[in-house]
Design a protein around this nucleic acid. Structure first.
Length: 742
DNA sequence: AGCACGCCGACT
DNA sequence: GTCGGCGTGCTC
């Protein structure tokens, strides 16, 4: 008897795939990558076959694969990528494949009323189990309901239990139901605009654009993987280089993936791609319905699509014969997924390209220090696009020293004057405030100094309870300041979050013109972002007050003045990348000014006018910023001179979280050996967000010299911790190459 | 993740 | 005594 078994990765957070028998009638059609329907406990889920092997010994204890799922099979290239992600990012393989899959038909348990209780039965039930009556009432509508719906209708807890006893009593029954997939939508070819290659490609490329394009095209022809960094200010024509490179690949019979940070905010890019490639392009993003997403996915897999545009997860598009991957705005934080699997699409792109023999183009006006370093050291190939194509000069930027401001207004005298003058000239004004100051930092109002950790250079966070300043990387603590150690001043400010004063100030002082706020809160509703922005771009609204979101991509033609209300908030986040983030965001915001015929002016208000992020952003000098930042990174052994991993430990009880985190540190120190060069363990300490949803959070940082040794070492530590029972009541989450330290 | 099992306080 | 709260452990 030659039975076959399959290891199936299921979408639950367990470390290993589960083993199932393959029914003989399915043996022919199941291989690695096949998506199958399998029972897990009392549910059925869709999983992916990771391995097929002959099964020896008895069959007892093994369940069988139910059927082959309707979703198509994963190509071996993507299976290999999934394995790499799972190992490198220490994420369960089932979750990785789940993130890579198109939406599955939802398999759920539905409950149905079998028999109504008689009136006497009902009385007894009402007396003994009133919840049961509730549940039966919810089910009385004849339609089978899911657990979730019943829970919502009855607003009861422990629904499963009640249903169990009702089922036993013969009142209800359940069955497993596969939600039907909506039929594949046939895309109407009429609504896609005609392909119009002439319109864009008619332009003469600049010298630098041609050089970049020639280099990329040659690399695509060679068919060996290479990574390019396209470094150019906004408006320098990066997009045209991307599009020509894609065009070149497509003409050679290859395909392309084009990643953008947030597709919702960049409709122009989609338009340009559409115009160029017609219906041979497809979009993948989070706002698609599952039907739309599935149909695009199927179109990609069947080869009907040459160019896939999308956000982070589009890096998993089942594109065959990949020739080029674009990562636009490569510095953007949204490429890193902040929940498991915590992958970085930029890194995944490079790994995938290596496997496929494809070329990666990273593009940015403000590259990450890591990417620029790789370009400088020759790991990537660097191409610069130094000038704005359309002419338009970069705006004049002035840094305003707020230490001289004494009053309560959010604006300095100078800014007030500029705003007034700008309103007088009927220009539009963008007020940028970075409200995401979750963490309270301390600052001397007189000299502007902010206390920083002597070991880690990150700003210290003030803790009201104990009145101490604490480092969230290493745990270092000192007493809170009463006088400034530098200038002796006594005006020490505890800077909190939120500066809504701005909107108030504007409506009080400029009541005659309208002002709109643009941030996560005001744009939550679908479509509201678009309508707010169009009100601003067509001139209905004079002031736009916004956070990060306004800095991205929008092309406002009539903005004459940009004011950065408080540049210090992002500068003083307890994060070693705070300076880099500040530089990026300031450069982007400044880029919003002077894009049309109005010459732009940018004001940056700060208590720290000498900070290198500000100084270099003010003169549009990325390289100067890089040179200085890289010194700090080298000095303190931060990336790109090391690799980081962050371990977050969570528990309901403060003590267990702390103990488990300390346990990890002691295990890591005990297990360190020459297999993990340059290992450095920092912490443990309270995480900056030290309590979330009643869970206490501690964290620690590991530094290592090389990329490949850190993850296996962490896995060894976790196993050891488990076997020594040091992790009781605590959960670990691992963030490899962390981008944020909250 | 979800869900069952099992151990403890508040009610008939 | 039971009901139902949450902590712990397993899913082939």
């Amino acid at each position: 008897l030659n039975m076959l078994k399959a290891d199936v990765a299921v979408p639950i957070p367990i470390d290993t795939p589960l083993t199932y028998l393959i029914p003989s009638e399915l043996q022919e059609s199941i291989g690695v990558g096949t998506q199958v329907v399998v029972p897990v406990r009392n549910k059925v889920v869709t999983g992916v076959v990771c391995d097929v092997a002959p099964h020896e010994g008895d069959v007892a204890g093994l369940k069988s694969i139910r059927e082959i799922a309707s979703a198509p099979r994963f190509a071996s290239e993507l299976m290999k990528l999934a394995r790499w992600i799972s190992e490198y990012y220490i994420a369960p393989i089932g979750e990785v494949l789940g993130a890579m899959s198109p939406p599955h038909p939802r398999l759920r348990r539905v409950y149905r009323l079998l028999r109504k209780p008689g009136s006497l039965e009902l009385e007894i039930m009402r007396a003994s189990h009133p919840e049961h009556v509730c549940v039966l009432e919810a089910l009385s509508g004849d339609r089978p309901l899911t657990l979730e719906t019943i829970r919502r209708k009855t607003r009861l807890k422990g629904i499963a239990r009640h249903l169990g006893s009702l089922e036993e009593g013969g009142y209800v029954s359940h069955q497993v139901f596969a939600g039907k997939r909506r039929g594949r939508r046939t895309k109407s070819r009429a609504d896609s605009p005609p392909v119009d290659t002439e319109l864009d490609s008619g332009f003469q490329l600049t010298q630098e654009q041609s050089e970049a394009y020639e280099g990329i095209a040659a690399a695509i022809d060679r068919g060996r993987s290479a990574t390019f960094l396209l470094f150019g200010v906004t408006g320098s024509g990066k997009t045209e280089v991307y599009l020509r490179s894609i065009d070149h690949a497509v003409k050679k019979g290859r395909r392309a993936v084009y990643l953008v940070p947030e597709i919702g905010l960049t409709p122009q890019i989609m338009d340009r791609v559409r115009r160029r490639f017609g219906d041979r392009c497809g979009v993948l993003h989070s706002r698609l319905s599952s039907g739309e997403r599935y149909s695009t996915w199927a179109d990609i897999q069947s080869g009907r699509i040459d160019v896939v545009v999308g956000a982070r997860s589009a890096i998993f598009a089942p594109v065959e014969n990949l020739g080029v991957i674009i990562v636009d705005e490569e510095h953007d934080a949204s490429y890193k997924q902040q929940e498991s699997p915590r992958y970085n699409a930029r890194e995944v792109a490079i790994v995938r390209a290596k496997e496929a023999g494809a070329v990666v183009i990273l593009g940015s006006a403000t590259p990450t220090i890591e990417s620029y370093h790789n370009a400088v050291t020759g790991k990537y190939r660097l191409h610069e696009l130094p000038e704005r194509i359309s002419g338009g000069d970069l705006p004049a930027v002035s840094v305003i020293d707020m230490r001289t401001t004494r009053d309560e207004s959010p604006f300095s005298k100078e800014a007030q004057g500029s705003i007034g003058a700008s309103v007088g000239r009927e220009e539009q004004i963008l007020l940028f405030l970075n409200r995401r100051g979750f963490s309270n930092y301390v600052q001397c109002r007189e000299c502007g100094i902010v206390p920083r950790c002597r070991n880690c250079q990150v700003s210290l966070t003030y803790h009201l309870g104990r009145k101490v300043l604490r480092c969230h990387y290493c745990g270092y603590a000192e007493r809170g300041w009463e006088t400034c150690p530098k200038c002796g001043g006594t005006n020490i400010e505890y800077v909190g979050s939120g500066t809504q004063k701005v909107e108030e100030y504007i409506s009080e002082n400029f009541a005659e013109v309208s002002c709109v706020r643009f941030d996560r809160d005001s744009t939550r509703r679908k479509g509201s972002a678009e309508s707010l922005l169009s009100d601003f771009s067509n001139g209905l609204v004079r002031f736009l007050v916004g956070t990060q979101m306004v800095a991205k991509g929008h092309d406002f033609r009539k903005v004459g003045l940009v004011v950065v209300v408080n540049a210090d908030v992002s500068m003083n986040l307890p994060d070693f990348r705070a300076g880099e983030r500040t530089f990026q965001i300031l450069t982007q915001v400044a880029g919003r000014a002077g894009r049309g015929e109005v010459p732009g002016k940018v004001l940056i208000q700060t208590f720290n006018p000498d900070h290198h992020s500000l100084a270099h952003a003010a003169c549009h000098d990325f390289k100067g910023f890089y040179e200085q930042e890289v010194l700090m990174r080298r000095d303190l052994r931060y990336p790109p001179f090391s690799r980081l991993a962050r371990i977050v430990v969570e528990s309901r009880r403060q003590e267990s979280a702390k103990r488990a985190a300390e346990g990890f540190v002691s295990v890591a120190k005990a297990l360190r050996d020459e297999s993990i060069p340059g290992l450095d363990v920092m912490g443990p300490s309270r995480a900056p967000l030290s309590k979330i949803r009643n869970n206490y959070r501690w964290h620690l940082l590991l530094k290592g010299e090389e990329r490949k040794s850190l993850s296996p070492f962490i896995r060894r530590c976790l196993r050891e911790l488990d076997s020594r029972r040091l992790a009781e009541a605590a959960r670990f989450s691992i963030d490899i190459d962390p981008q944020v330290m909250m």
